[in-house]
C-alpha cells in the first residue's frame, strides 16, 4: 500500500474533520500542506482507491428496516451478464459473484436487497427471480436481524 494512501486512511478512517477546512486539518495531521492533501485525494479518487466521499447512512434509520441478502445458484455461463443487470436494479446496493461451498452452499450470486419491510424485500426477490429466469437453479434470502458491528475498515498504525 503506498504511503500516502495508508496515512490518509489512518487519518480519516474515523471520518473527515467537521471543521470548515477539513483538508487543511488533515494536512496538519499528516505533516504536509493542504495542496498535497487535495492532489493526493484527487489522485486516489481517479484511481478508485477512494470510492466516494460522503455520508454513510444507517439503512434502518433512513427507513429501510428490512435487508435481505439474496443468494442464487446461477449457471456459470450467464452469471456475469445477469449480475450486471441485477446490479442496476434500484433496490440493490451490492451485487457480487462469490464461490460456492458445496454441498452446504450452492449459491454463486449475492445481491443485497433493501425495503421498508420484509414483504417489500420479498417482492424484490421475485423481481430478481423473474430476471434470472431458467438460469437460476435455487435461491435463498437471509434476512438480517441485528447489526453486530459496523465500524468499517480499521488499519492499525
Amino acid at each position: 500500500m503506498d504511503d500516502f494512501a495508508r496515512r490518509l486512511i489512518l487519518a480519516t478512517q474515523q471520518g473527515l474533520p467537521l471543521t470548515p477546512e477539513p483538508y487543511a486539518e488533515l494536512a496538519r495531521t499528516l505533516g504536509c500542506d493542504e495542496a498535497t492533501v487535495l492532489a493526493g485525494i484527487e489522485d486516489l479518487l481517479a484511481r478508485g482507491v477512494i470510492r466516494r466521499i460522503g455520508v454513510v447512512p444507517n439503512h434502518y434509520a433512513i427507513g429501510y428496516s428490512a435487508n435481505g441478502m439474496s443468494v442464487w445458484d446461477v449457471d456459470d455461463a450467464v452469471v456475469d451478464a445477469l449480475g450486471e443487470r441485477i446490479g442496476q436494479l434500484p433496490f440493490v446496493t451490492h451485487c457480487y459473484r462469490r464461490p460456492r461451498h458445496l454441498p452446504d452452499w450452492p449459491y454463486n450470486l449475492f445481491a443485497m436487497l433493501h425495503g421498508g419491510n420484509r414483504d417489500e424485500v420479498m417482492v424484490h426477490v421475485e423481481e430478481v427471480r423473474a430476471l434470472l429466469g431458467e438460469a437460476c437453479r435455487s435461491s435463498d434470502v437471509l434476512f438480517s436481524t441485528q447489526i453486530l458491528k459496523k465500524t468499517g475498515l480499521r488499519l492499525t498504525a
Binding site: 500500500m1 478508485g48 477512494i50 466521499i53 460522503g54 454513510v56 444507517n58 433512513i62 475498515l153
Partner: peptide, 27 residues
C-alpha cells in the same frame, strides 16, 4: 457541519468521509 455532527450523534449516519476500496492498494 452542525447537521452532519447531529446526524452522526443520533446514529442516522454511521460515518462521514472517504470510503476506501483497499483492494486497489493491495488490501
Amino acid at each position: 457541519i452542525a447537521r452532519i455532527k447531529n446526524l452522526l450523534q443520533r446514529g442516522v449516519l454511521t460515518r462521514f468521509g472517504p470510503l476506501f476500496q483497499v483492494e486497489r492498494v493491495g488490501g
